[in-house]
């Protein structure tokens, strides 16, 4: 470790991210700061790049979704250490966009939403995951707090999908509807449903969700 140069360290950080080894990523991220290496470069060239590479491999069938999720978690472990250093240097991480995501109120299904979140992260987006059973008010607060480009709402049951409509209505009433794009998904939802409740888009699966978000934000 003593003679580790910058290139080696960033390569190892990327490898650890790809391996989903959060502990190793945290350790190496501290090393980045210790050695005075540009933390932004570490984020972009190692953490984000590692996750994006893995995302491409998932689409081509080489790795599993659990690998992506582990890598995304590892990336976050690194980010939490490097972020303050980046801010200290007066810089910020360039993402493709910021997404707030959550499963609607009354619905505790985690898996679909988590996969979409991980894939968005693996595609270069900043994702703020509000978790499950998220009431409309919490989405509204998140819009105010994070100023996201897109809100994503998941619902896995025919009973809870109605909450998607309710949440959009609440966002409208709060006067925030024109500040964000809203996308919905989940097993019982359809493109027609999305149109009916005034969402900006709908996707049937995680890969389509990433494509949808890119399309809405004019990212080619």
């Amino acid at each position: 470790m003593v003679n580790l140069n910058k290139e080696d360290l960033l390569n190892r950080l990327k490898e650890a991210t790809i391996n989903g080894d959060s502990d190793e990523v945290a350790r190496l991220s501290k090393k980045v700061i210790e050695l005075g290496i540009d933390p932004l470069e570490a984020v972009e060239k190692a953490l984000v790049k590692g996750v994006i590479e893995l995302g491409d491999k998932w689409i081509s069938g080489e790795v599993f979704i659990s690998d992506i999720i582990a890598a995304a978690d590892a990336m976050k472990a690194g980010l939490s250490i490097l972020k303050s250093e980046i801010i200290k240097r007066g810089k910020s991480i360039k993402y493709l966009g910021r997404i707030v995501i959550g499963t609607v109120e009354g619905d505790i299904h985690d898996i679909g939403k988590s996969i979409v979140a991980a894939l968005l992260e693996a595609s270069g987006f900043e994702v703020i995951d509000l978790g499950i059973d998220v009431p409309p008010q919490k989405f509204i607060e998140a819009i105010r707090q994070y100023n996201p480009d897109v809100i994503g709402m998941s619902a896995l049951m025919t009973t809870t999908m109605l909450k998607q409509r309710e949440t959009i209505e609440a966002i409208k009433q709060a006067g925030l509807r024109d500040r964000v794009k809203i996308v919905v998904g989940g097993a019982p939802t359809t493109e027609e449903w999305a149109g009916e409740i005034g969402a900006d888009g709908w996707a049937p699966d995680a890969i389509s969700a990433v494509e949808l978000v890119k399309r809405l934000l004019n990212i080619v």
Partner: peptide
């Protein structure tokens, strides 16, 4: 999905067919 155990065992426990389709309809 997020647990290390899943990453360690999923591949070992399952036969992954090359041709039988397991994707989403879309």
């Amino acid at each position: 999905l997020k647990h290390r155990h899943t990453r360690d065992w999923w591949r070992k426990e399952h036969f992954i067919p090359r041709l039988f389709d397991k994707r989403t309809t879309d």
